[in-house]
Amino acid sequence: MGFKLLSKLLVYLTASIMAIASPLAFSVDSSGEYPTVSEIPVGEVRLYQIADGVWSHIATQSFDGAVYPSNGLIVRDGDELLLIDTAWGAKNTAALLAEIEKQIGLPVTRAVSTHFHDDRVGGVDVLRAAGVATYASPSTRRLAEVEGNEIPTHSLEGLSSSGDAVRFGPVELFYPGAAHSTDNLIVYVPSASVLYGGCAIYELSRTSAGNVADADLAEWPTSIERIQQHYPEAQFVIPGHGLPGGLDLLKHTTNVVKAHTNRSVVE
């Protein structure tokens, strides 16, 4: 069995187990497998329904001669939608809004960016022009300005110390501490036991640490421990890039980060 097929099978099995364990909360999309990078042309966006009122959005972007996937989250909030992270750029984010209108038909009224990198804030200006209120932590807003990236308009308070959590509509926002970046936030959907790890969490097929220019490698494993301790009931975990899975993604990420750190020390 090929690795790609095995990865998709694991996603399907995880979703099936969740649907059985929580039949009222989960209505997993039966329309197909989780979209992969090879299936999404740059400039297009796919939506994948995880649970009743919960979707991931998947886009792709060219970077350094390669094409990478990027995940975000959409959560229903009454007759409105909360968006977590842009679709990595203005063109993708405009396509995301169009796809949401086509498939869901509810307005996106608020959006949260989970850290300051372009795959999370690139497209904020498109959201703002569409009347979406954009939010991020003060740290993310400051770092985005320093980096020359787009800056969300509103500040999220109460997320300055490791372990801080605040309720934001249908989700809980959690600051686990520094990891992929010093400002990275985690998003949890309690009604569906869905954990969105953003770039602080890796997919299972990833074996290298990737972009760690703004990471705190020493603190990252401790931050992941905080996530595990705060959300032990999480059933569906979405990484910032690639295929979702279960809580095993947290341990896998820790292993990859520690291996990278150990290699760096040896070198």
Rank of each mutant, 00 (worst) to 15 (best):
G2R: 06
F3G: 07
F3N: 15
K4H: 07
K4R: 04
L5D: 09
L6Q: 04
L6M: 08
S7D: 10
K8S: 12
K8T: 05
L9C: 05
L9A: 07
L13E: 12
A15P: 09
M18P: 04
I20G: 07
I20K: 14
A21L: 12
S22H: 05
L24Q: 13
L24W: 07
L24G: 05
A25N: 05
F26R: 07
F26I: 06
S27K: 12
V28F: 14
D29E: 14
S30Q: 09
S31Q: 08
S31R: 12
S31A: 06
S31G: 08
E33Q: 05
E33S: 07
E33L: 11
Y34K: 15
Y34F: 04
Y34C: 13
Y34D: 10
Y34S: 08
P35Q: 14
T36A: 07
T36P: 09
V37I: 07
V37P: 07
E39C: 09
E39Q: 05
I40A: 12
V42W: 11
G43V: 09
G43L: 11
E44Q: 06
E44Y: 09
V45Y: 02
V45D: 03
V45H: 03
V45S: 06
R46K: 05
Y48G: 08
Y48S: 06
Y48R: 06
Q49R: 09
A51R: 05
G53K: 13
W55G: 00
W55A: 01
S56K: 08
S56C: 07
A59F: 02
T60Q: 05
T60V: 07
Q61C: 06
Q61M: 04
S62R: 07
F63N: 08
F63A: 08
D64H: 07
D64K: 06
G65Y: 12
G65W: 06
G65V: 06
V67N: 07
V67A: 05
V67S: 06
Y68F: 05
Y68V: 07
P69V: 06
N71T: 09
G72W: 00
V75T: 11
G78Q: 12
E80R: 13
L81V: 13
L82R: 02
L82S: 14
L82E: 04
L83I: 15
I84W: 01
T86Y: 02
T86G: 03
T86R: 01
A87K: 00
W88G: 00
W88L: 00
G89V: 02
G89A: 04
G89Q: 07
A90K: 09
K91G: 13
K91P: 15
N92Y: 03
N92A: 14
N92M: 15
N92P: 14
N92T: 15
T93D: 00
T93P: 00
T93Q: 04
A95K: 12
A95V: 11
A95P: 02
L97M: 04
E99D: 15
E99G: 14
I100K: 01
I100Y: 02
I100E: 01
I100M: 14
I100H: 00
K102W: 15
Q103Y: 15
Q103N: 12
I104M: 15
I104G: 00
G105D: 15
G105W: 10
G105R: 09
L106N: 15
P107N: 13
P107K: 15
T109W: 15
R110G: 13
R110S: 10
A111G: 13
S113F: 12
S113R: 03
T114V: 00
F116E: 03
D118L: 11
D118K: 11
D118R: 06
D119V: 01
D119G: 01
G123N: 03
G123C: 03
D125W: 12
D125M: 12
D125A: 12
D125N: 05
V126F: 14
L127Y: 13
A130N: 07
A130P: 04
A130F: 05
G131Y: 12
G131W: 12
A133L: 06
A133Y: 15
Y135A: 04
Y135R: 00
Y135F: 10
A136V: 03
A136I: 02
S137H: 13
S137N: 15
P138D: 13
R141E: 04
R142S: 09
R142M: 10
R142N: 15
R142K: 10
L143T: 10
L143K: 09
L143C: 05
A144E: 03
A144V: 09
A144K: 05
E145Y: 07
V146Y: 13
E147Q: 05
E147Y: 14
E147V: 12
G148M: 05
G148T: 07
N149I: 11
E150T: 13
E150A: 08
I151L: 11
I151K: 15
I151S: 11
I151M: 05
L156E: 02
G158V: 14
G158A: 15
G158K: 15
G158W: 15
L159E: 01
L159M: 12
L159S: 02
S160H: 10
S160Y: 14
S161V: 15
S161C: 14
S162D: 13
S162A: 14
G163C: 04
D164R: 13
A165T: 10
V166I: 06
V166R: 10
F168M: 12
G169A: 11
G169S: 05
G169V: 03
G169Y: 15
E172N: 15
F174N: 04
F174V: 14
Y175S: 14
Y175A: 13
Y175K: 04
P176R: 02
P176E: 01
A178G: 11
A178I: 06
H180E: 00
S181K: 01
T182L: 12
T182W: 09
T182I: 10
D183N: 03
D183P: 00
D183C: 00
D183S: 00
N184Q: 11
N184C: 00
L185V: 11
V187K: 00
V189I: 04
V189F: 12
V189P: 00
V189W: 00
P190K: 09
P190T: 13
P190A: 12
A192L: 07
A192V: 09
A192H: 10
S193N: 06
V194E: 00
V194H: 01
V194L: 08
V194T: 08
L195G: 00
Y196C: 02
G197F: 02
G197K: 02
G198E: 02
G198L: 02
C199T: 01
C199Y: 03
C199G: 03
A200C: 04
Y202K: 07
Y202Q: 13
E203V: 03
L204Q: 07
L204Y: 08
L204F: 06
S205V: 08
R206L: 10
R206Q: 05
R206H: 06
R206D: 07
T207A: 10
T207S: 09
S208L: 12
S208W: 12
S208N: 05
S208V: 11
A209C: 06
G210W: 03
G210M: 11
G210V: 12
G210Q: 14
G210R: 13
N211P: 07
N211L: 10
V212H: 10
V212K: 09
V212C: 04
A213M: 06
A213F: 05
A213C: 12
D214M: 07
A215P: 14
A215S: 11
D216Y: 15
L217E: 07
L217A: 09
A218I: 07
A218K: 05
E219A: 10
P221H: 15
P221F: 11
P221Q: 14
S223R: 03
S223E: 02
I224K: 01
R226T: 05
R226I: 04
I227T: 05
I227A: 09
Q228S: 12
Q229G: 12
Q229R: 10
Q229T: 10
H230I: 15
Y231N: 03
Y231M: 05
Y231F: 04
Y231C: 05
E233G: 07
A234D: 01
A234Q: 04
Q235F: 15
F236K: 14
F236S: 05
V237P: 00
V237I: 13
V237W: 02
V237D: 01
I238L: 12
G240L: 02
G240M: 02
H241S: 00
H241M: 00
G242C: 03
L243I: 12
L243Y: 14
P244K: 11
G245M: 03
G245Q: 05
G246H: 09
G246I: 05
D248T: 15
K251E: 06
H252A: 10
H252P: 02
H252T: 14
T253K: 00
T254D: 13
T254Y: 07
N255W: 08
V256H: 12
V257M: 15
A259C: 07
A259Y: 14
A259H: 06
H260G: 11
H260A: 10
H260D: 11
T261Y: 11
T261A: 07
N262Q: 06
N262T: 11
N262E: 09
N262G: 11
R263T: 04
S264D: 14
S264L: 13
S264H: 15
V266N: 06
E267A: 05
